[in-house]
Design a protein around this nucleic acid. Structure first.
Lengths: 342, 342
DNA sequence: CTGAAAGCGCTTACAG
DNA sequence: CTGAAAGCGCTTACAG
């Protein structure tokens, strides 16, 4: 005997809070409170509402909630890559830090592209995120403009900001690059090459660290540098080690800006009969799992990416809650992993 | 001379469509149309609205749009892992397929956990997704219940469904496992071990394929199987190759359920002086980049993960548009990559 | 502790 | 092609 549905209804057909309230015999907003702030409702009504929720299979409508409360419960995360294990570890840290809260995490893969970053951020802004997690310190003018005009709390990940206003969690890419180079110098190498790929801001900082160390030791030579924009892969490392040996035949050691390149370089040396580290020392960056297991095992820089994600998300959550953070720059450091390859 | 803001306003302070409309001197809904369906508005008004949008820096409110239109423009994607390169490739395919559309892609990492999958899906359901992309064919009862009661279009990725109602894009994990085993048998091996980790449904299907091939050849022996629930890693592969050789010293070949394990097994053999493939043939699954470059290079199964993501997203988009798909099961196949290690 | 009313910012259906 | 009205499903103030 149900009444005929008005033909022109715009209702979604889903169970609404109003239906729950009716079932429980309370006002809509009592039902709302019973769900979002259970402590403010008497036990009797609370259980009645909870039962109605269960019976009806009520699922809150996030869009309606966001619209009414002006709180999206969305956190947008922008990373330059998902195929790079570094950033998936960062995401795992973020996920763990935010696990208890009811946040919707929007994961955006910018693919190292400013245009893609702008596009994704533009879409994410439509969701009025409560907070944003960014990779890197530098961004396009449009991105910066979207960010500042929105007034949303932001935390930058991966590197240390020089501007104290900019909250950042990471470690000094420059210092890490410098430290690895100094390690190689300390091992007695003079002709130390650097292979950089992708040329994102972190690679460039590592390269600067390399140059600083080389200059300080009076060893700098542009012929020892190879910088290419291609994404870093094993295949590229295999290719570039050959190029390095052509352009600097007396090269004794190569600092690869990340482990993928180093692995490729080592595999290629094995094929070409070039002893590593005997004839050529090779090291990488980031300490990917394979680095500890390869033969030779790979000397590299261990980086706290999971921790970066975790701490950045924790800091962001505090900001969203309106807390004044004690520290605005969290330096998680890095670890030089001395192994067999260099 | 602006009027004093009412103290109790709930307005977000952001630029609204109404503000844009006022600026352009049109009705709100004309402004709305000028933005979402520009063709239905005269050129004069359209440009006036567009200019107002630019001047005011208007950003549409997605929550309001979703609420009013009953279209979330959200697609939820659930994958079991982000650290596994297979799934990041799937995600890349999805991203590319949906690039032109204005979808918000919700990426959820279930970490191979049913509980996590339920939790994420529960949260995503609050956003009323227009479509859902799932990994795998089997899901917990609660997940299935959420899915069926929601009536949302769903496409399953990675394996082929037997139920024709279930749309799926992938390849037969069973057949792939069987094919690799038959390849090893064809190479003359009799004592062929299988190492499975994680024990997700895909690994189990590959193991079934292995068993089927072994039984068919009259070579089946439970002592040749190692199945562990730990996540598959290089370290685990290194450990398990030793265990296999203990429990089946006459083992001639090992089929690892994925490349990480195979890499670890090979590295460990190198350290232990076990010749690969001379003394022990080792093969993997998925053809990760390192497999082509290692020494020995790794025999494995190439899988079309990028394509899976792309095709699944394309199919889902058609479903969302209300199209009746011609094929409901898209088998993208697999490729046996014969290399040096087996 | 509980509730009637108003409003969040947009789009839908309808009419002109 | 354009617009006044109503409504999406929820929460916020306010009052009792």
């Amino acid at each position: 005997m149900s009444r005929i549905q008005p033909a022109k209804s715009r209702a979604s057909g889903k169970v609404t809070l109003a239906a729950v309230a009716e079932r429980a015999g309370v006002a809509t907003m009592t039902a709302s409170r019973a769900i979002t702030q259970p402590d403010m409702v008497s036990e009797t009504l609370r259980t009645r509402v909870q039962q109605a929720v269960a019976e009806l299979g009520y699922v809150p409508n996030r869009a309606a909630r966001a619209l009414a409360s002006a709180q999206s419960k969305v956190i947008a995360v922008l990373v330059p890559s998902l195929s790079n294990a570094v950033f998936t570890a960062v995401l795992a840290g973020i996920q763990d830090a935010l696990d208890a809260d009811d946040y919707q995490i929007l994961i955006g893969n910018t693919r190292y592209s400013d245009a893609e970053e702008e596009k994704l951020l533009g879409i994410y802004m439509q969701s009025n995120p409560d907070g944003i997690l960014l990779s890197g310190l530098t961004h396009s003018a449009r991105v910066q403009q979207m960010l500042t005009s929105s007034q949303v709390p932001i935390v930058s990940m991966m590197d240390m900001a020089t501007n104290p206003e900019q909250l950042s969690v990471g470690f000094s890419q420059f210092q890490a690059g410098q430290a690895m180079t100094q390690y190689l110098i300390g091992k007695g190498h003079r002709r130390i090459g650097f292979i950089g790929a992708q040329l994102d801001e972190r690679t460039l900082k590592r390269a600067e660290g390399y140059r600083a160390a080389m200059q300080q030791a009076g060893l700098a030579d542009p012929a020892l540098e190879i910088m290419v924009e291609d994404p870093s892969t094993i295949a590229l490392g295999a290719e570039l080690v050959g190029r390095m040996l052509e352009q600097a035949p007396d090269c004794q050691a190569i600092f690869c800006c990340n482990d993928d390149l180093a692995h490729g370089a080592i595999f290629q040396c094995q094929r070409s009969g070039i002893a590593v580290p005997g004839r050529l020392a090779i090291c990488g960056f980031n300490d990917l799992p394979a680095s500890a297991w390869m033969n030779p095992s790979v000397t590299t820089v261990g980086t706290p990416r999971y921790q970066i994600g975790f701490e950045a998300a924790t800091l962001l959550r505090a900001l969203i809650k309106g807390e004044q953070p004690e520290v605005t720059q969290i330096d998680l450091g890095f670890t030089l992993m001395e192994r067999e390859s260099a």
